[in-house]
């Protein structure tokens, strides 16, 4: 029977904290950049210009239909060979995760916009508003309401996805865990603690998502 010993990990508490903060920071950056990319690609999907539509379609499908781990390795190891541009592990990680997340956000944003009654756009246009103004003032404010829950869900998945950046030696929570494991030979305790940390951060977040979903349904 295995005897658990968590005491040994106490001396590594700052490393755990460091890793956790790094994971949160990467997640925040990746969500913000991903949302910008997603908004751009999502609106391009709705454009009347077929070239813009094609570009965003290609982007979305490439990143949705290849594994994130493969993308990370490709951007870090293959892209420099191809272009001669060396990316730091952090840059490659944030860029890849943002592009990956953006492809999913784009679909959510496109879906949210097309779910709005076309009569809303017509009413805006009939007043003499330009299509851009209609999007900004009439369609998006209504569509965002529908989008927020799935966007939040996707962001929660992104939080967990950041654990993959450890393969590029980005010092996130999982990477620090690997370091601690090598130091202590206590993988069972270390990875249990790491799982608990992810869980403890995400459970309140999912509760907030649930509550905001209900709130949004009631609001204008």
């Amino acid at each position: 029977m295995y005897t658990w010993d968590f005491n040994i990990l106490w001396s590594y508490r700052w490393l755990f904290l460091n890793g956790t903060l790094m994971t949160i920071a990467i997640t925040a950056g990746v969500i913000i950049l991903g949302l910008l990319l997603g908004l751009l690609a999502g609106l391009m999907q709705l454009s009347r210009n077929p070239i813009l539509r094609w570009i965003s379609w290609a982007y979305i499908e490439i990143f949705r239909c290849t594994p994130l781990l493969v993308q990370l390795l490709w951007f870090y190891y293959a892209l420099p060979v191809l272009t001669g541009v060396e990316l730091s592990a952090m840059t490659a990680a944030v860029m890849t995760l943002s592009l990956y997340g953006g492809s999913f956000y784009a679909e959510v944003i496109r879906g949210g916009v097309i779910a709005i009654d076309p009569g809303q756009s017509e009413a805006g246009l009939a007043l003499g508003m330009t299509p851009a103004k209609v999007m900004k003032r009439i369609v998006l404010p209504q569509a965002i309401k529908q989008m927020i829950p799935p966007l939040m869900n996707q962001s929660i998945i992104q939080f967990k996805n950041t654990s993959l950046v450890s393969v590029l030696a980005v010092p996130d929570l999982l990477y620090q865990g690997q370091v601690i494991t090598m130091d202590t030979f206590r993988p069972l305790e270390v990875y249990t603690v790491i799982a608990v940390i992810y869980f403890v951060v995400l459970v309140p977040l999912t509760a907030i998502v649930k509550r905001s979903e209900k709130k949004l349904q009631r609001s204008h």
Binding site: G119, Q120, A123, G124, A126, L127, G128, P141, Q142, K145
Partner: peptide, 24 residues
């Protein structure tokens, strides 16, 4: 698009299904 918008601003349209802006 701009010329269309300008032209439309000179006509008022009332729709069968009202199409009021629900968030306002």
């Amino acid at each position: 698009a701009k010329d269309q918008a300008h032209f439309r601003s000179n006509t008022g349209m009332v729709f069968q299904h009202f199409n009021l802006f629900p968030h306002k």
